[in-house]
Simulated assay, not measured.
Amino acid sequence: MADIRHALMIKYGLGRQPTQAESDIWFVEVEKLKRQGVSSEEAGRRAAQAQLPGFKSKIYASEGDTVETLLLRVRDK
């Protein structure tokens, strides 16, 4: 299974893999937004735009995972 940092890079078109600290901050922000009633995908996008460097600066041919899949992978680490 691919590293969560690599998966975030692909999904959100980042210019580099986020650090572990950056991916942890993304996770916390997504969970906070979900508690406020924001859908998982929208929460993931908002958190990535606010917290991850280079949001949508690249386009990768690979299809990214859903935010729910990414959240499960972070929880399982």
Rank of each mutant, 00 (worst) to 15 (best):
Q49L: 09
L52Y: 02
E31Y: 08
A48C: 09
R45E: 04
T66F: 05
P18E: 05
G37T: 00
V74I: 15
A43D: 02
H6P: 03
E31W: 08
E68V: 09
S40W: 01
D76S: 14
G64L: 12
S39P: 01
Q51E: 14
K34T: 00
D3G: 05
A47P: 04
L52V: 02
F55D: 00
R5A: 09
V38L: 12
I25R: 15
R35V: 06
P53M: 04
E29Y: 10
I25L: 13
A61K: 11
Y60H: 08
S62F: 13
F27I: 12
R35W: 06
A43R: 01
I59L: 15
P18M: 01
G54V: 02
G54P: 01
A21Y: 04
L72V: 00
P53L: 07
G54F: 00
A50L: 12
Y12V: 03
K34W: 11
W26P: 03
E29M: 08
D76L: 13
A61M: 11
S62Y: 11
V38Q: 09
E42C: 04
S57I: 00
K11C: 02
G64S: 12
F27E: 14
Y60F: 10
K58S: 06
E42D: 07
H6E: 14
R75M: 05
V38E: 03
K34L: 12
A2G: 08
E41H: 07
G54S: 00
E29Q: 15
G37F: 05
A7T: 09
V30A: 04
L52K: 02
I10P: 03
K32N: 13
E31H: 08
A50D: 09
D24F: 04
A2K: 14
V38W: 06
I4N: 10
D76R: 15
R46K: 13
E63W: 09
G13A: 06
H6R: 13
S39M: 02
A7H: 06
E31N: 10
E22L: 06
A7V: 14
A48N: 03
